[in-house]
């Protein structure tokens, strides 16, 4: 199995000329911190509506503290990122399109398995995902698919008797 794949190594050379996405580190920071800030605020707001009990520490107390702290520190980082000058290491995202498609495929996988069952989905999903991941040789694609199917069958279903959907 390994040997087959090894021989194909040179053949594989996915689209080398593909563009990469360059973002400034500052932009990435700002986007992520904003998201975390909103998340922290959402938790605090929700927690404020929680019932209070007899004790000093209510169900809402801990979420308010940690959610609040998350918002606070994200805000701090946000402030630092916005105000800071000078050098920002650029964040380079290579193959951005393929990356986004692969994420979408991963997120869609559970729902597909739920509806259509594991094996039919895997037979199609694995080679497509493999192509996106950069496998360009048919042998590689087939090998990857077979490995995945065999793992499902032998390790999960037979050895560990976990029924797959």
């Amino acid at each position: 199995m390994t040997r087959n794949i090894k021989h194909k190594q040179q053949v594989e050379n996915p689209t080398r000329t593909e563009k990469s996405l360059r973002l400034s580190g500052r932009t990435v920071d700002i986007i992520v911190c904003l998201a975390l800030l909103i998340m922290g605020i959402w938790f605090v707001v929700e927690a404020l509506h929680m019932p209070s009990g007899r004790e000093a520490l209510d169900p809402g107390t801990f979420p308010i503290i940690v959610g609040g702290a998350l918002a606070l520190f994200s805000l701090l980082q946000l402030g630092l990122s916005i105000s800071a000058r000078g050098q920002w290491a650029a964040v380079e995202v290579q193959r951005p399109l393929w990356l986004v498609i692969s994420m979408a495929m991963i997120l869609a996988f559970p729902a597909a398995v739920e509806r259509l069952g594991y094996y039919p989905v895997a037979v199609i999903w694995v080679p497509v995902f493999g192509w996106i991941a950069g496998i360009r040789s048919p042998v590689g694609l087939i090998a990857a698919t077979l490995i995945v199917l065999a793992l499902g069958k032998f390790v999960f279903e037979m050895l560990l008797s976990t029924p797959l959907p």
């Binding site: 090894k6 594989e12 559970p110 995902f129 590689g140 990857a144 499902g152």
Partner: peptide, 27 residues
């Protein structure tokens, strides 16, 4: 020695299988 795209594909699938087996659920 296995090319990384193949590893990525197989690992992604194992992650999915493994987390399914953790509770028998696609959730």
């Amino acid at each position: 020695r296995i090319p990384r795209p193949i590893i990525a594909t197989v690992v992604a699938s194992i992650c999915m299988l493994g987390s399914y087996a953790a509770a028998n659920d696609t959730f």
